[in-house]
């Protein structure tokens, strides 16, 4: 056991990152499952993180209350975001939602309550590894429970053919709003966990670079598979650490793995175990 403890202390931040990144990947997997290339997860995460930090640290709310409001805010923003982008699909939806992410980042940069570009400092470490994995498990359990549900089916038919979905009586507009709200809640949860395990927040934590990583987790995982997304997040969080000896070049491993997956295993990790 002492060995295990020592390992944990040494790699604790990586272990935490894996859990948080897996939750973020699940948030995007929800959208992709419904055929929505909505790339606002980093922004949802930022909203969750800042709202949690402001309510709990600045306003001195209890942690549970701040967490609840943070997750609810990210979910509400997700639902509201679905309205202006109602007519956008595919790449156009991707561009619009990336634009939304930029707006969130710039607003966070210019507000006083977020600490602006200097960041939000002095967040107490109120949460830790067990909380992160409890949240991941809980979200996974919800996915599992809903797996064969009519709502899950409606998401899949919406991805397959929106018009034909409407033709059998599925309100695809509601599917899209609900999907983005769920994505907001999940990424918002990741944001809360991030805030209380990282001492301080800056707008760049939630910028396009983060979004790109989340997309890579899902592509490597197999796009719509939740388990694949978690596996992709795990792999792509560990890899750069394992290649630390490459120093500044270690980020290259991400690109190489991504290329290899797209070329050799377009179904991602999920596609490999289905074969």
């Amino acid at each position: 056991m002492p060995d295990f403890l020592e390992l944990y202390t040494r790699y604790r931040t990586v272990v935490d990152q894996i859990g948080i990144n897996a939750i973020l990947a699940l948030s995007l997997a929800v959208c992709l499952r419904a055929g929505q290339l909505a790339l606002a997860q980093a922004a949802f995460m930022g909203i969750g993180a800042y709202v949690a930090a402001i309510t709990v640290v600045t306003l001195r709310w209890p942690l549970a209350a701040g967490t609840f409001v943070a997750i609810a805010s990210a979910a509400a923003v997700g639902a509201l975001l679905a309205l202006p982008v109602e007519r956008l699909r595919g790449v156009f939806l991707a561009i619009a939602t990336i634009g939304f992410g930029e707006i969130v980042r710039i607003v966070a940069y210019n507000l006083k309550i977020t600490g602006g570009g200097d960041g939000f400092n002095g967040i107490p470490p109120l949460l830790s590894t067990p909380w992160i994995y409890a949240a991941l498990l809980a979200i996974g359990a919800i996915f599992f429970a809903l797996r064969g549900s009519r709502f899950a089916l409606a998401m899949q038919t919406t991805r397959e053919d929106e018009a034909a979905s409407q033709g059998v009586g599925i309100d695809t507009g509601r599917v899209r709003v609900t999907t983005l709200a769920c994505a907001g809640a999940i990424a918002g949860t990741a944001g809360v966990l991030y805030a209380f395990t990282n001492f301080f927040l800056t707008p760049t934590d939630f910028a396009f670079g983060r979004m790109e990583q989340i997309l890579v987790y899902c592509v490597i995982g197999g796009v719509t598979s939740p388990l694949g997304a978690v596996a992709g997040a795990t792999l792509m969080t560990i890899l750069p650490e394992a290649f630390r000896f490459l120093r500044d070049f270690r980020e290259v491993t991400n690109g190489i793995v991504l290329l290899a997956v797209i070329v050799f295993a377009p179904g991602g990790i999920a596609g490999l175990w289905k074969r």
Binding site: R150, L153, T157, E160, D161, A164, S165, G167, V168, I170
Partner: peptide, 26 residues
Amino acid sequence: VARTYQNVRLFGALTIRENLRAGAMR
């Protein structure tokens, strides 16, 4: 009011079961 399409519009990647369940959704 149910319909079919001149060019078939099934949910191709989904199973027969899922297609029928989708049809029964209403």
